[in-house]
Write a protein that binds this DNA or RNA. Sequence first.
DNA 1: ACCTGAACACCGTTCAAGT
DNA 2: ACCTGAACACCGTTCAAGT
Lengths: 213, 213
Amino acid sequence: MVESRIDSRKKKLGSKRAPVQERSRQRRDEILAATANLLDRVGFDGLTTTLVAKELGISVGSLYHYFPHKQAILHALGERWLEEYNAALAKLEEATRDNTDIEKWAAAAVRYVGEVYEEQRGILPLVQAMYAVPELRDLDDRHDEQVVSQLVPMFDRMKIAKSNSERERIAWLWLEMTHALFVSISEQDGARAKRSREDLKDLCFRLLEKWSV
Amino acid sequence: MVESRIDSRKKKLGSKRAPVQERSRQRRDEILAATANLLDRVGFDGLTTTLVAKELGISVGSLYHYFPHKQAILHALGERWLEEYNAALAKLEEATRDNTDIEKWAAAAVRYVGEVYEEQRGILPLVQAMYAVPELRDLDDRHDEQVVSQLVPMFDRMKIAKSNSERERIAWLWLEMTHALFVSISEQDGARAKRSREDLKDLCFRLLEKWSV
DNA sequence: ACCTGAACACCGTTCAAGT
DNA sequence: ACCTGAACACCGTTCAAGT
């Protein structure tokens, strides 16, 4: 709710400030990309600030110019995960807006959300850690919240459950269930992953069908 | 003050060895108990060897007399989790031996396995880490294997699926699904947890019913 | 203004020295 | 035989000093 304090000076300093901010934003992105890259290669525990700095050819101190601490880098990466996930749900909402077929919804949901898990496969160690590491725990909570609030209206449209509190509970179930399976699926080979994804779609369908009214 | 309780030459039967081993085993258990206790209080990341040593009133070096490294303590604790889980499945097998009712099986499974999650609630941070930490990963793999091999015969008896490879796949699905939900449930308050457990029972039933032949 | 890297506190682990 | 705790390598983080 805080109005930007920079707005008043934007006209005057805009041209001078933008490049600096742009460069800064770019560096931040570079750090995030390098971290995501290393996360995939050395794992959550193997990740060190020295390693990230070396990967970018800068000093550790420089890293701390852009992020207050290591967790902040991981946190920003987690934010990105939330955004991608939310974008997938928005696409799902869009794609299933004018049908109430539960089975089709389940298929679309598994496809769209599954794509996120595939594309972000490298940072899954981080996503898993979100639950366990206290400093990242808020991401997990927000993720839950956001997903539930996006699913409830869709469930409503599909006439699933008779109250919103029930829909919230089912949305949570759906989230936990699909998350556990997508993470496992991300480590399976192509053929098995394909079958597992079909199983999951089916499981989603059955879950929702049960509460269909 | 020196007592001649040290027998330099051991007898054939080794009857004198037992007390020493017994004492050693006891210390190991104490270390495990203290670690489990701290895990619950300070979390997976907050756990340090110094802290464990302090908790027991011994030195760090002494810790390394009983375990080669920190991960070995956690590993041993993980082994215990596997044992408890397997014991629950054995009880489940025993309790459902002479019926083929899928719904009853689902109820019993959620009850017995759920008890393990409740009793071992303190070490759930560790169980979660088993997946992410490379040194503990073998526990996760063995857990998967053991659970699947215990479930397949039960599925067979209940006439679920038409081949063992299918049963293995369903067992894996069951494991991932219930694990994700049990972990989440362990953090809910009593009333909500009760409802969630019923939802889970229902979900299990529907999962198995689908493949019932 | 931005970057550097030695310095600091703290971790897991070791091992010479005590009892 | 068993235990101790200073010492070591390495982590995240800081900050005086460079450009």
